[in-house]
Nucleic acid binder design. Sequence first.
DNA 1: CTGAAAGCGCTTACAG
DNA 2: CTGAAAGCGCTTACAG
Lengths: 342, 342
Amino acid sequence: MPTRPKYGNRPTMKDVATRAGVGLKTVSRVVNGEPGVTSATVDRVRAAIAELGFRRNDSARILRKGRTASIGLLLEDLGDPFYSALGRAVEEVARDHDSLLFTGSSAEDPEREEELALAFCARRVDGLLVIPAGTDHRYLLPEMRAGTAVVFADRPAGRVAADTVLTDNAGGARTGVAHLIAHGLRRIGFLGDRPQIHTAGERLRGYREAMAEAGLPVADRWVAMGPTEPARVAAALDAMTGGDDPVSAVFAGNNRITVGVLRRLADVPLDRRPALVGFDDLELADMVTPGVSVVAQDPARMGREAARLLFRRLDGDPTAPRTLHLDARLIPRGSGELPPRG
Amino acid sequence: MPTRPKYGNRPTMKDVATRAGVGLKTVSRVVNGEPGVTSATVDRVRAAIAELGFRRNDSARILRKGRTASIGLLLEDLGDPFYSALGRAVEEVARDHDSLLFTGSSAEDPEREEELALAFCARRVDGLLVIPAGTDHRYLLPEMRAGTAVVFADRPAGRVAADTVLTDNAGGARTGVAHLIAHGLRRIGFLGDRPQIHTAGERLRGYREAMAEAGLPVADRWVAMGPTEPARVAAALDAMTGGDDPVSAVFAGNNRITVGVLRRLADVPLDRRPALVGFDDLELADMVTPGVSVVAQDPARMGREAARLLFRRLDGDPTAPRTLHLDARLIPRGSGELPPRG
DNA sequence: CTGAAAGCGCTTACAG
DNA sequence: CTGAAAGCGCTTACAG
């Protein structure tokens, strides 16, 4: 007595073959649209398929064929608008390549990233698109050697050579800070994400470079790196806008932090607010008063380019790994053009 | 000469067995942590696994075991903040149940929904969580009979009995419109999504009910249903706020439409703007002037409840399909409390 | 044009 | 404690 698999009792090709009075291989031919079957036979098989409600088990097919026609997308947080826009773009490209998409959020936890990545590999995804949470991806080397294509996006791969798509984070921050400087602001603070996050460090670097280029000093208390929770951001903002050495402008290191700053400033009269430029765009940034000036990335483009690189590898591209740099674009809307206070 | 599968040449359990000088079944025992293997043997097998870089092929395992430990999530648009928040919650629940998540966007196209849903079924996902684009889901009946669990969210299933999680759309819209009425507004317009979308119809119904309850008339030109593109929304808004029978308040049927309305009103002086309440919350809704009053859904809760229902079915819950109704909550922020214009 | 046999990489059911 | 055989549902390689 054979065990019944747990998923009900689905008809198999064998059942269809029996019902149609043909061989198994003939059913396979019909299901896959292969030539060399009389139309009469095709009809009989099709009828049996319809009667039994047969649907080919792609898991079995995959086991035999090798390619799973699926890729895994590992991002930081599906719920973040930046990453969901990126994910949607990846999905479109996957669809163009008849591939399905596994999605998982690492929640900025390297262990969780590894766990998910290896789970995807165990499912034998053809490729992996990773927004890194960790900084050491050598755990992927055996998978890559075994043929799994891997592309990194948003942050660089750790100790592994692979295609990567990055925004020019330092350059973007430099542009944003230079914009503040051009508007007469000289005492500029930087509010960033945790320093171990690569993009946070790069943006901080861009900030320092812009300040240095303009010959402006940076006081220690003007730089605050840490979690993006509203309370932390508010406290850090208060610290650098208060005291006897207050900043008159702030560069916010990402969308979460910009939102935190905006909330904290909501009750502050316009003429007492620091100028503000944020990294990453926000949905209603142009509707707020004053409009929020930002350095915008293009998450959809990042997703699209990364996915294209991935499928190029799957198509057999043998060239050396490359890194694609995307520009960040300054969008002035008012908050970054406020005059310096007193 | 056997064909090499396309995914490189990964070591199999057989390779590990040969290397460790044990039987295949012993490797399987070690990999799965089954008892009854001497620790010496375990060590030998583990060493062979490490040397070969072996990772179990879960596709093969799945084929034998029946359950795939994966579910499919079909939503309208991964890039929409509402759905990505929902998706993230689904992901969390899936993770709690050691299940991986396939994601796909139907882009409001019933054919694409069906294509994706059936592709997921062909992969033998254990269950399907569907945000319907279409209105007839009988195509899923054979899959459901074969044991695939299906739960619908956000919109009802079409001609199929299944667990469903819905927001009380009519009630939410009624509350929002009643709020406008309570603030003295009587000429209230409704700007909705395309009428064939269930939630759009329900919200329109709630609007009409609130107006009727207050004994207020609804002119035909006060109701505009259609695509959420900014241009369409702007034109529809202009039409109902202009002419000789203009509205003094607008209820916006979803987040896309609210954004369209806000953009159109950006240049209009405050005292000449219609009052506004929108369905769905927006990230910076409280930062705009005036704050955007909304009727907010809880997408994360919707995702969580739907995913829980799904896994309850997978755990064998034999009860009849149920529908869960979630409340929508009014959040007054200013735009819905504007006084009626002259 | 059609089909029987072997095999994809695992697990199941047994036997020792 | 250990392993050989059969089987999951398909495709591949071959033979007729």
